[in-house]
Design a protein around this nucleic acid. Sequence first.
RNA 1: GGCGACAUAGCCAAGUGGUAAGGCAGAGGACUGCAAAUCCUCCAUCCCCGGUUCGAAUCCGGGUGUCGCCUCCA
Length: 466
Amino acid sequence: MKIYNTLTRSKEELKPGVPPLVTFYACGPTVYDYIHIGNARVFIVFDVARRYLEYRGYNVKLIQNYTDIDDKMINRANEQGISVKELADRFIQAYEEDVGALRVRPANVKPKATDHIPQIIELVSRLLDNGYAYVTNGDVYFDTSSYPHYGQLTRQKRDELLAGARVEPGEKKRNPLDFVLWKQKKEGEPAWDSPWGEGRPGWHIECSAMSTYYLDDTLDIHAGGADLIFPHHENEIAQTWGADQRPLARYWMHAGYLNIEEQKMSKSLGNVLTVRSLLQEHDPLDLRFLILSAHYRSPLNFSDELVAQSRSGRLRLQEMINNLFSALESGGDASGKRERDLQKALEDAKTRFVEAMDDDFNTADGLGALFDLARSSNIYIKEAYPYNRDLLEEVLQFYRGINNIFDIVDISEPESLDDEVAEKIARRDRARAEKDFATADQIRDELLEKGIILEDTPHGTRWKKK
RNA sequence: GGCGACAUAGCCAAGUGGUAAGGCAGAGGACUGCAAAUCCUCCAUCCCCGGUUCGAAUCCGGGUGUCGCCUCCA
């Protein structure tokens, strides 16, 4: 299993600290608003990564934090005239709803920054003790000049970073690159007692504190969106080193950007697409499929056309699953060349899928393997009759396993038909046998209105829900 | 200015040395009473110019173009 490590800019063999355990920390949302599709990409991509690692036999412990205290939280809460806590509660719930609809599985631990103030204070104290931080008027800053490797993740030296850095007026930093660990309370802001007076944590510190608290040692994987590389993850690395003289994580994974119609999503362009609004008109599985159709590190350009394409492609897989269930009804124990061909196609797909995913989670290539098997499976169903029931089950079982990672189709036993509909289908079949196509078509239209689509196959009429 | 990524058919997208996966759309055909679903066929010399090599989309050099980061944006 190879993973692209942003730290080394290369693919590396995954070697967890204590296999089969993989400790996985994914940066979670700042809960001040509904998440947008760009956020969703990150969560979906790492959800799939996590599930694939489990598929490969790893025992994944996933931590995903909620940032529930920072400037954005405070500003938004003030705008809305509610407390930061109320804001956080509301959008944590919204997040869980949205991401749940997208079938992202919850993390094992979902810590909030505000629940870990003691750990944060403790970490800041240690940084001060170790000489990596300084206090200015109740603020505590990390001293980037004290950490020689600062810039390693960003691949820039301190002075190079410095060249582009902006200096905010009125700041109490010694150096523009220094960042705040603890922020002194301003009037009307939530605050906690600390050795440096009342205040609140800076943004970067929470992840270092919480990952250390829950996982105790160097993380196997630390993941987030590409825009977190600098400064967020760079700072986390520096902090954790300063406090504990150890790397924060072995592998750094970053998901690429998602743009809208070639443009970055931004409030000023008015092109922010929330998951909530997209779910009004799109099937969440189509969105998942869309995300997985590109490699996670590539930029992805979201558009209505792309959603439509994704849907068509996804429905091809869904239809194939339906075909499998339908064929199972007439499954027997046939065996011959057709069975051998399908068996071969199945083995090929298994191999290719794992090879693709083992190569830094190449989901696009993995999908290719699924489509290839879909064709073979459809050919088998079309040409071989009766079928080999065990083989059909085996194919279905493969897709079940894959879908436990990708989650892009529904694989469940077809519902049983209610008597009224069954009777109508029987009546239509009689009409067709008598070449009374007017009646047959009328019944088909009738059922279509009820959301039931009829398809005539050489082996009888089958139905599906619209 | 510094750092970095990317450039494959109408669209999306794999492929990192051996003569271009897959999906969507499109065209033709098979099947069907008609449909639907499905299957078959067709549809790219991989941004440009050099170089290395028996052989390059894949490696090297030089261009061109697009994008990102250097601001508490995923």
